[in-house]
Simulated assay, not measured.
Amino acid sequence: MTLFSTLLKQLSIKDFFDMGIVAFMIYQVLKIVKGTRAIQVLLGMVFLAILYFLGINYNLYTVNWILEHFFDYIFIIFIVIFQDQLRAALATVGTGRKMFNFFDRSPVNYDLEEVIKSVTALSKERTGALIVVERKNGLQNYIDTGTVLDAQVHSDLIYSIFQTISPLHDGAIILRAGKILAAGCFLPLSKNIEIDRHFGTRHRAALGISEVSDAIVIIVSEETGKIKLCYNGEFLYCHNENELRVLLKKAWSGKRLDSQTHLTGQGV
């Protein structure tokens, strides 16, 4: 107890503030890697740290030499390994809360019913579709890869874009503030090697854009006609029009989606 009291006397408010910032940063890193393969990499690094500690205590000179050089560049290695996670984290800085209102884009209440109507029609005809709804993280770099439309959101327009005879049916359409900004856009493919092997390019692209942004993605399977929502790196089934409406509104408002609707990897 004396040691603890002595330690408290030597610590100032600045030290507690410093430790609080570090603890918050570690917590955010753990939130980012939770549920991804990155957590396995972190566990591997912890194993190397334990090995390094044992090497020092038991004079394992070769192991110590290798690990000393490894940990000399630990920050560079960390950035290279977790570049995707760091990019996603930096993209969300200032958008998760109201503390940076100047950069915050308020949700626009445009008519999602037009989207739902077109998706339902495409699903019945088993016509593949990929629709990205931009939220707070800007998607301009992906918009630039497609054909600029800057048209009002309308179910007939969305429906016609994804018809196989349309020159823009390949790729995704990106929506922002009640407008279809571009069609035929190329999205980043997910690097998640654990994704179901039955998923094609459309699903991998949907997962990829949701991993690097807070966008909401709607997918219509060309093979089965099933509708899926991709949000925050997860797929969710939409068994009917009403369920799609509920999930869209929840995702748009930033609410936590029901984990019971997550895909099990069956019936793609």
Score class of each variant (00 low, 15 high):
Thr2Arg: 12
Leu3Gly: 13
Ser5Tyr: 09
Thr6Ile: 12
Leu11Ile: 07
Lys14Gly: 04
Phe16Lys: 12
Ala23Thr: 07
Phe24Glu: 10
Ile26Phe: 13
Gln28Cys: 11
Lys34Ile: 08
Gly35His: 08
Gln40Ile: 11
Val41Arg: 07
Leu42Met: 15
Gly44Thr: 09
Phe47Gly: 07
Phe47Ser: 10
Leu48Asp: 07
Asn57Gly: 07
Asn57Glu: 15
Leu60Lys: 13
Trp65Pro: 00
Leu67Pro: 04
Glu68Trp: 07
Phe71Pro: 09
Asp72Ser: 13
Tyr73Gly: 11
Phe75Cys: 09
Ile76Arg: 07
Phe78Thr: 00
Phe82Ile: 07
Gln83Asp: 12
Asp84His: 10
Gln85His: 14
Ala89Gln: 06
Val93Asn: 06
Val93Lys: 09
Gly94Met: 03
Gly94Glu: 06
Thr95Glu: 10
Arg97Asn: 14
Asn101Lys: 14
Arg105Leu: 10
Pro107Gly: 10
Pro107Phe: 06
Val108Lys: 08
Tyr110Glu: 04
Asp111Val: 01
Leu112Gln: 01
Leu112Cys: 01
Glu114Phe: 02
Ile116Ala: 00
Ile116Asp: 01
Leu122Trp: 04
Leu122Tyr: 05
Leu122Glu: 02
Lys124Val: 03
Glu125Pro: 02
Glu125Arg: 15
Arg126Val: 03
Thr127Glu: 04
Ala129Tyr: 00
Ile131Lys: 02
Val133Gly: 02
Lys136Trp: 04
Ile143Tyr: 00
Asp144Trp: 08
Thr145Ser: 09
Ser160Ile: 01
Thr164Asn: 13
Ala172Asn: 00
Ile173Tyr: 04
Ile173His: 03
Ala183Thr: 01
Pro188Ala: 04
Lys191Ser: 13
Asn192His: 06
Asn192Ala: 09
Ile193Gly: 02
Glu194Thr: 15
Ala205Asp: 01
Ala205Cys: 05
Ile209Leu: 05
Ile209Gln: 00
Ser210Asp: 04
Ser213Tyr: 01
Ile219Gln: 00
Thr224Phe: 08
Gly225Ser: 06
Gly225Tyr: 02
Gly225Pro: 08
Leu229His: 01
Glu234Val: 07
Cys238Ala: 13
Cys238Val: 04
Glu243Leu: 08
Glu243Arg: 03
Arg245Tyr: 07
Trp252Cys: 02
Ser253Asn: 15
Ser253His: 14
Arg256Ala: 12
Thr261Gly: 04
Thr261Met: 11
Gln266Asp: 15
